[in-house]
């Protein structure tokens, strides 16, 4: 595996020729492995209740955010709008509140989603293996869980209270997901929290461990950038566009088969450029507010959408760049074990 020093050297490197060369190589690997296609997905935020207190987060339990949770009927209304636009891969998200969005609530949402989508992923609080198994049987194909930062001390500093304070429980989440049979796992770091090179190394190490021990899973990674909340004076690390580009390139060169996601948190220009050297999946026409598709508003600044283009506009850009937009990339089958 690539060393910590090689990663930090590359992140510090200022040679445009080297960067261009490696970007081209990453692009060739991506095309050979995934083809000239880009998968599309959209998120639906079900609930923003949260029991954790994370210094950097606009959802944190101590902030004054207006809390909302969709009823099953509201969930269905959101889904109808998203499915109506053509999206077939859905990511269902909640804040990390087991109390307000219990597994039974997630199960209901997954069952409704089954009527509208061909692939269902969850980004919720970490669960136990038997709970993942129940969700898998109900039709969940993927789980997204970010370690945020792999630096234990920093993690402890930033996560003040709540279940999320338990570093190891979170670290072992991908393993519990894999053991349940769920086929796709998305991992990542919230870039900006800690020293990027170190976090990237530890993410690669984690990914390597997962690939070796759970080879049947399809892995992907994301590199969301921290958006600093007003009034938060914590000492964060600035993440530039170049840093993000280098994260994508390093991932592709070291993990040819791992998917790389890029959400609408990044602006249109960066997203369009990144298609050429490693990105395999993008969200599109996202609304990141609870109930936002029905209400047509975006309100939570933490998950602010920077790429506001419609699905049709994004589809047009993809085609112009020679990529086939892929809406359906999984057909749900009965997941009941034999």
């Amino acid at each position: 595996m690539i060393t910590k020093k090689e990663i930090s050297d590359f992140l510090a490197d200022r040679d445009p020729a080297l960067l261009e060369k490696l970007a081209a190589r990453a692009g060739r690997i991506t095309a050979a492995q995934f083809g000239k296609v880009i998968s599309l997905y959209a998120p639906i935020y079900l609930s923003n209740y949260c029991e954790n207190n994370c210094v950097y987060c606009g959802f944190r339990s101590s902030c004054g955010l207006k809390r909302k949770k969709l009823t099953p009927k509201q969930i269905e209304s959101e889904m109808k709008i998203v499915a109506g636009s053509g999206i077939r891969n859905i990511l269902l998200l909640t804040g990390e509140s087991r109390k307000m969005s219990p597994v039974s609530y997630l199960m209901d949402a997954v069952k409704i989603a089954g009527k509208y989508f061909s692939s269902i992923s969850l980004e919720v609080y970490p669960l136990d293996t038997d709970e993942y198994l129940e969700l898998y049987k109900a039709g969940v194909d993927g789980v997204t869980v970010y370690q945020e930062t792999y630096d234990r001390n920093r993690y402890d500093e930033l996560h003040l209270s709540g279940k999320k304070k338990d570093y190891d429980y979170r670290y072992k989440t991908p393993e519990r997901v894999a053991l349940s049979g769920i086929r796709m796992i998305s991992m990542g770091i919230l870039t900006g929290l800690s020293k990027l090179g170190d976090d990237l190394y530890d993410l690669f190490d984690h990914l390597n461990f997962m690939e070796r021990n759970y080879p049947g899973v399809e892995y992907s990674v994301s590199f969301p950038r921290l958006i600093i909340e007003p009034g938060d004076e914590t000492d964060y690390h600035k993440i530039t566009d170049m840093d993000l580009v280098k994260c994508i390139i390093l991932t592709r060169l070291n993990f040819p088969r791992v998917g790389i996601n890029l959400s609408t948190r990044e602006d249109a220009s960066l997203r369009d450029h990144a298609l050429h050297f490693g990105i395999t999946r993008i969200s599109a026409a996202s609304n990141t507010s609870v109930g936002g598709y029905v209400e047509g508003v975006q309100e939570d600044p933490q998950f602010r959408v920077k790429d506001l283009r419609s699905l049709k506009e994004i589809e047009k850009v993809l085609r112009a760049k020679g990529f086939d937009p892929v809406y359906t990339d999984w057909r749900r089958i009965d997941n009941t074990p034999i």
């Binding site: 109506g84 636009s85 053509g86 061909s118 892929v326 359906t328 990339d329 057909r331």
Partner: peptide, 10 residues
Amino acid sequence: MRRVDADAES
């Protein structure tokens, strides 16, 4: 089969 969607909007 994973790419086949008879009801595709696209």
